[in-house]
Design a protein around this nucleic acid. Structure first.
Lengths: 231, 231
DNA sequence: CCAAATAGTTGAACGTGTTCAGACACAGGC
DNA sequence: GCCTGTGTCTGAACACGTTCAACTATTTGG
């Protein structure tokens, strides 16, 4: 968790330049969008040469990774009040998911621009990639906390163990919808969240009963089996 | 349906050149992959200038659209035997979905290369885009036929109406998994299909009963509401 | 304090998708 | 036989992300 995430240059000078570059880049992304922001512009605005920017970040996409990490921190912060206040599972899940959409929504105009990298399995920006492991684990941990802090909800232990990751997948689905959602202020995505959270909670509750128990367990087996090799 | 899908040039000469370009391009995609195939190479191999290729296809991505259409035709053909033979819903659905994976699998090495365009909501190659409407409708029609030809399966009429599109979305999910699936011969994707098809069929059957009926109807309302504006 | 190694920096150059001003071809009217 | 317009075609040029050989600054070891 506290392992060094930088592959080179822990010196003060290097770290400073590194921050300068990424801050300039993220500012320009916000101002002009991802496509319209040129590596030459980033370097120029930061008072550096293009080659120098590439000394710190091996590609334009890697600048986006930093954005992901910061977005995850914002999500954590935005979800905190709900997690500290509520004990009802539905309220907690709803709060965490809404917080996700809220934090993304602020940057929608440019975040959609590099979403396509996230969908590319080859890209380090894929949420399933090793490079994204840090942000992914933090995100799953948030859902684990949402489940843990709701003692009232009853479910089979197998489901309880797998639930955080399943909820993270559910979040990925919401994000996928959000990216395609052109409604004003992403109203449809909020509607999706508002209406699917009760359904998910209901399903979790129903998982104890015979009719669904079989299906749910089949699904859990499937997820275990189809996971990526590393885990 | 029979509306003209070409925006210009219905003359014999033009259509010929157009075909030459796309055939060359698809051959090179297959031989070298999408990235490694240059517009200069395509033009060169076809004996044309770069500018000429752009006269017929406004971008490299548009060449991929043609691939999509052909892949859909292959899927139709591959699913035909099962649809003509089987009357059991599960067998029909399984056959159609397996046929989809089979036809994609043949081109996996390069198809994954331009999948990221499909995930980009802005791209004409998105399965939800107007440009993809033709292939999308054909694909949904295939699932409609899978449902229609299985008289044995009982379900509420509202579900029956919505089911083809829901199954198409299910297929999109399978494709999404397939793209990320690095197992030999996409064995895991086949496992996913083999194990989720019975679950889906079971769920459809259960939709008549009180416990699930409410949830299913909520979901149907949601899908209706959250669809893209055009419909 | 010097030299050698390492860290940091530069800008020209490469290959890419795409654009564009102009050249060519061929039809139909006069 | 020309003129005019429209469809076809050309290759140089552009902007972009990225690479690289060369250079300078800084740190480290003796």
């Amino acid at each position: 968790m506290t392992a060094p995430r930088r592959e080179s240059s822990s010196s003060a000078k290097g770290e400073q330049t590194r921050q300068l570059i990424v801050n300039t880049a993220l500012r320009l992304f916000r101002e002009r969008g991802y496509e319209a922001t040129t590596m030459r512009t980033v370097a120029g605005e930061a008072g550096l040469s293009v080659g120098n920017a590439y000394y710190y970040y091996p590609s334009k996409q890697h600048l986006v990774q930093e954005y992901y990490d910061r977005a995850q921190e914002l999500h954590d912060a935005a979800a905190r009040p709900v997690l500290d206040r509520e004990t009802d599972f539905e309220a907690r899940l709803h709060g965490v998911l809404r917080a996700r959409v809220d934090t993304m929504q602020a940057d929608k105009h440019f975040a959609v621009g590099f979403f396509r990298f996230a969908a590319d399995p080859q890209s380090p920006l894929s949420p399933f990639s090793p490079e994204s492991a840090h942000a992914r684990e933090l995100s799953i941990a948030l859902y684990a906390e949402a489940v843990r802090g709701a003692p009232g909800v009853k479910m089979p232990p197998e489901l309880r163990d797998a639930l955080p990751e399943l909820l993270w997948l559910y979040q990925m689905g919401v994000v996928l919808y959000w990216v395609h959602d052109a409604s004003p202020n992403s109203a449809k995505t909020y509607a999706l969240v508002d209406q699917t959270v009760p359904l998910v909670v209901k399903l979790v509750g129903l998982a104890r009963y015979r009719l669904l128990r079989g299906i749910i367990f089949d699904l859990l087996d499937l997820v275990r089996e189809l996971r990526a090799p590393p885990s």
